[in-house]
Design a binder for these strands. Structure first.
Length: 321
RNA sequence: GCUAAAUUAAGGAUGA
């Protein structure tokens, strides 16, 4: 059976889930007795085929055969529930796993956070996180969120405008010995910008540099985006200069953001100047660069320029989207 | 001891 499991897992890993099921059926036909591992592979295939219902059937079979579902079983089923949009059931399974004494690992937790954040249930994720922390203080249930898990929740909270909660979670993370990285800092900066706390955002930016965390192109783009949306495009331009001095090269997203800023301020000439300078500086352009500038021209009724720009875009083999 | 939850995994930015 080990050999068969190895075969099935290999086929499963290359995503040929249906073939796994066919092979499994042949095994049954040949009276080969499967074990828990085989059933886990099978169950996972059902879940990945968006058939959690069949996944649960596999679970039933497992129980009927006297096997005790393990971490792998639960993790697969949780993922399957999310794939099928059955969020409440995913949470229910997670709790059931803990209550039945099944020791969950970092991966199970990551799967749950991934599913919750992926469906926008950030507050649910936070509540579960808190609950798990409490539980783990009483009895070790294997709850050890890594920086990715923290980061997803922190970012989600920031996007909901709940920076205070995000900051608190970040402090908790630190107290657990995990230092915030560039992604976490960037999320917090974006969250602060989102609620209009620019000074505090700038403070975090300076703070991260003090901590030796180098802001990257995304960090700068977040700052630039905020300044642009607040009508402070010159200040935004200043950040482009700063990032270059700090060794970060603006990418197309960074440039598009500033381009949009100029357009929003009605400074179409400056937008064009910057657009041209992008080429000179070797900064990347993409379809969005053209779209943004064309939108600017449209708003000013400069239709000839729009057409000219569009033709230039097509001639440079940028595909209109 | 070998096989299972894609650990070559999973988190942050721009226009429409």
């Amino acid at each position: 059976i080990f050999s068969f499991n190895l075969l099935l897992s290999t086929v499963s890993r290359i995503k040929r889930y249906k073939d796994v099921i066919l092979m499994y059926n042949k095994m049954v036909y040949c009276n080969l007795l499967s074990d828990l591992c085989t059933l886990n592979i099978l169950l996972n295939c059902f879940c990945n085929l968006k058939r959690v219902d069949l996944g649960f059937s596999a679970l039933t079979l497992m129980l009927k055969r006297g096997y005790v579902p393990d971490v792998v079983t639960f993790t697969s089923l949780i993922k399957g529930c999310f794939v099928a949009g059955r969020i409440d059931e995913a949470i229910g399974l997670f709790k059931k796993a803990i209550n039945t004494g099944c020791k969950l690992n970092a991966r199970t937790w990551a799967t749950l956070i991934d599913g919750l954040c992926g469906s926008g249930s950030y507050l649910v994720a936070l509540a579960l996180h808190k609950e798990m922390r409490k539980r783990n203080d009483v009895f070790d249930v294997g709850f050890k969120p890594n920086i990715i898990c923290y980061s997803r929740i922190i970012d989600g909270l920031c996007k909901e405008g709940l920076v205070q909660k995000a900051k608190k979670l970040c402090l908790e993370m630190k107290s657990n010995g995990i230092s915030p990285d560039v992604v976490v800092y960037t999320s917090l900066i974006e969250g602060l910008c989102y609620v209009g706390k620019w000074d505090e955002a700038k403070g975090v930016f300076i703070g991260m540099i003090d901590q030796g965390i180098h802001p990257d192109v995304i960090t700068f783009t977040v700052l630039i985006n905020d300044r642009c949306k607040k009508g402070k495009t010159d200040e935004a331009k200043g950040f482009i200069d700063l990032m270059v001095r700090m060794g970060e090269i603006p990418n197309s997203v960074t440039c598009n953001t500033l381009l949009e800023g100029f357009c929003l301020e009605g400074r179409i000439e400056d937008a064009r100047k910057f657009f041209d300078s992008m080429e000179d500086n070797g900064y990347d352009r993409d379809v969005i660069s053209y779209s943004v500038l064309m939108k600017g021209y449209c708003k000013h009724g400069m239709m000839d320029d729009v057409i000219e720009l569009f033709e230039e875009m097509v001639s440079k083999e940028y595909k209109p989207d």
